[in-house]
């Protein structure tokens, strides 16, 4: 593609940003116990809140609910889709990508947010739009563009139940080395890990095992973070560590809005946190909106797996 051709192509593609893929449409079936049971069995999810009516009747809710992650299932087309899919702006856009050689397709991320529970008898409505299309990216799969759809789910009363963002990479497939073909699993981007060396490997290893440690000088007992080989106070090389209770307070914070980096959640909130033990730590704040974060806010942390390969300390409002 010449720069002019690329510009012409991008003008056509970017025109799809903000376009509605479908207006608010009701699911074919109302929320019902049979489909919930099939889904829970397939997932191996034995939570009685979904399937055990007797248990649920005595619970706080008084009735069963549909698994929140099932939200997207209610509006799926089902078997009829095998006979071809009616065209809509999304299929038109995909066709345009294909025409220009971006025939490769890779679903990279799905992010769901839940606002309300639904129970048998409720009906889910779906509306969807094309939310964003990235600039041209050079990825390991080839040159391509990420597009993201935003599906919004509501119930029969029009109340918002949840949203789902689905990010897809459309790319020009490259010749893959033979070793990478066959039934190799496709790589989904994950967060950039810390390299592990002599002075920090033990700390990350502990995080993998669910613990947040703070290095301590064996001689003068002063705590230090990030870990380093020598105590700055007494120059001792001897150290051990204590486990942090993961309680802390916000010293400062920001949110990385741009550029979006593959493998990271959208708009991650990062903070310098003063731990109760006295040392500072940089980590994410999750479980609340950016606008609700403030300097001095109290936090409680947990070690959590955040993607397929990454385990990190994550902090929630205390």
């Amino acid at each position: 593609m010449t720069p002019e051709e690329q510009k012409a192509f991008e003008d056509r593609i970017y025109a799809y940003v903000g376009v509605k893929v479908c207006e608010r449409t009701a699911a074919k079936d109302a929320v019902n116990p049979a489909m919930i049971r099939h889904w829970a069995e397939a997932m191996g999810d034995t939570n009685p809140a979904y399937t055990d009516e007797t248990w649920a009747a005595n619970s706080r809710r008084g009735k069963t609910i549909a698994p929140p992650a099932m939200m997207y299932a209610w509006n799926q087309e089902g078997f009829t889709v095998t006979r071809g899919r009616a065209s809509d702006p999304q299929t038109d856009m995909v066709e345009l990508f294909n025409e220009y050689g971006f025939t490769g397709v890779l679903g990279t991320n799905v992010t769901q947010e839940y606002f309300k529970e639904v129970s048998p008898g409720d009906t889910l409505y779906l509306e969807m739009e094309i939310d964003s299309i990235s600039e041209r990216k050079a990825t390991a799969r080839g040159i391509g563009y990420f597009f993201e759809t935003l599906a919004t789910f509501s119930d029969q009363n029009g109340e918002k139940v949840g949203t789902q963002r689905f990010r897809v990479l459309k790319f020009i497939p490259q010749e893959q080395p033979t070793a990478a073909t066959g039934d190799d699993k496709l790589e989904v981007p994950t967060r950039i890990p810390s390299p592990r060396g002599h002075d920090n490997g033990w700390w990350w290893q502990a995080v993998d095992e669910g613990k947040l440690l703070i290095q301590r000088c064996k001689r003068c007992q002063v705590l230090r973070h990030p870990p380093r080989p020598m105590c700055g106070e007494c120059q001792s090389l001897e150290w051990d560590s204590i486990e942090s209770g993961m309680e802390g307070e916000v010293i400062s914070y920001t949110c990385l809005r741009h550029p979006a980096i593959p493998g990271y959640p959208k708009d991650p909130v990062c903070a310098v946190i003063k731990l109760a033990e006295g040392t500072n730590l940089v980590a994410n704040i999750v479980g609340c909106d950016y606008d609700d974060v403030f300097i001095g806010m109290k936090l409680k942390g947990r070690i959590e797996q955040v993607d397929e390969k990454t385990t990190l300390p994550q902090f929630y409002p205390a």
Binding site: S194, G197, N200, P226, S252, T254, L256, P259, N284, L312
Partner: peptide, 28 residues
């Protein structure tokens, strides 16, 4: 690399994000 490794996993990846952290505190 090891230094940056204390920040990259959380998404604190760019000069703007590091400067933002200092600035937010200073404004406060």
């Amino acid at each position: 690399a090891i230094h940056w490794g204390w920040y990259t996993p959380y998404g604190l990846l760019t000069p703007a994000s590091w400067t933002a952290m200092i600035t937010q505190r200073w404004m406060h």
